[in-house]
């Protein structure tokens, strides 16, 4: 069982001092949830768990622990984020020990919550079913009907460039068409696209959960926080909010692993991944580049060649 393997490996890494800290997932305080767990004591590894609710991209925590040797539990997307961060020289050599887990695809807790009438008080995962229980109901739901869209379309469930893989490899076959959100967005007319973007961002409360949940957002000073120069106002004017979201997405070009952490973090349930997915698709089509696959090739917009074609300049 993967959970046992994670614990075993974590115990080993802490005991032989390969790492100072393990970052993994622990039991959440709510049904359908896990919570990031930080373990330093090999005796406490039993606090680590693994299930279909391990939705966070734990790579975002690595910026907090730059002075420690860290062992981290990673899914396919999380591992790709770390490879992308390594390219940006965020880690010292051998600072990290990646415990890769072939991912079974994560479950969208809000979608599950909406499938039943009443609050879910208990949830249990068993094979391909999620058993949920509340006041006056108890039903089993098909796990596959409640996966996050980013997970449904995932093409890299097996973590790559990891120190160890815990669990058997899974088949790389998206359940739905890859880049489906981007394609749907492309099919809209410019006016429809704008309306969609405008409607979604209108709910933004500028809590920056999307930024903080994202491992790639680590600027010492985010452009929205700069007061000199001041790029953006801090209120709720639509143009400021839209500006933030456009820049946030563009800054991810060729750097986003498509993990969906931004969208999962949003308390206002703003759709965000269609934007980054569109940029990922463009980068794939124009440069045949995918984030975090090649450990030595920087993202296209972070580099240049003197022989680069410039035929777009007329």
């Amino acid at each position: 069982m993967i959970q046992e393997k994670i614990r075993e490996k974590a115990r080993e890494l802490l005991s032989n001092k390969t790492v100072d800290l393990i970052i993994g997932f622990g039991e959440g305080s709510l049904p359908l949830r896990t919570t990031p767990r930080f373990i330093r004591d090999p005796e406490k590894v039993n606090r680590l768990i693994w299930n279909s609710f391990c939705e966070n991209n734990l790579a975002t925590y690595l910026h907090k622990f730059s002075k420690l040797k860290v062992g981290i539990v990673v899914k396919g997307c999380d591992a790709r984020s770390i490879t992308a961060l390594s390219l940006e020289k965020r880690f010292k050599p051998d600072q990290l020990f990646l415990m890769g887990v072939p991912c079974q695809r994560m479950v969208d807790r809000r979608k599950v919550g909406r499938a039943v009438k009443g609050e879910i008080l208990q949830a249990r995962e068993e094979n391909d079913l999620i058993h949920v229980k509340g006041d006056g109901f108890e039903i089993a739901l098909e796990r596959e009907d409640f996966l996050y869209p980013s997970c449904q379309a995932c093409m890299h469930r097996n973590p790559i460039h990891v120190n160890v893989t815990l669990g058997d490899p899974v088949e790389e076959s998206p359940l739905i068409e890859s880049y489906h959100e981007a394609k749907r967005f492309e099919q809209m007319s410019p006016e429809e696209r704008w309306n969609f973007f405008e409607r979604e961002t209108s709910r933004c409360i500028r809590c920056y959960a999307c930024r903080e949940a994202c491992p790639m957002c680590y600027c010492t000073e985010c452009f929205v926080d700069s007061s000199n120069p001041k790029w953006i106002e801090k209120g709720l004017s639509p143009s400021d909010i839209q500006f933030y979201h456009i820049v946030r997405a563009y800054h991810q070009t060729g750097r986003c692993s498509g993990c969906g952490a931004c969208e999962r973090a949003c308390p206002m349930e703003i759709r965000l991944t269609y934007l980054t997915q569109k940029l990922n698709r463009d980068v794939k089509e124009l440069f045949n580049y995918e984030t975090g696959i090649e450990p030595d090739i920087p993202p296209p917009l972070s580099t240049y060649e003197i022989e680069d074609k410039q035929d777009f300049i007329k």
Binding site: P36, R37, I205, C207, A213
Partner: peptide, 24 residues
């Protein structure tokens, strides 16, 4: 440790009341 430093809890809190004054 697990806090990612976003503003969800403070902005959605009915009692949090801190503000910042700026000139636009």
């Amino acid at each position: 440790e697990k806090c990612i430093g976003c503003g969800v809890c403070t902005f959605l809190c009915p009692t949090c009341h801190c503000f910042d004054i700026v000139d636009e």
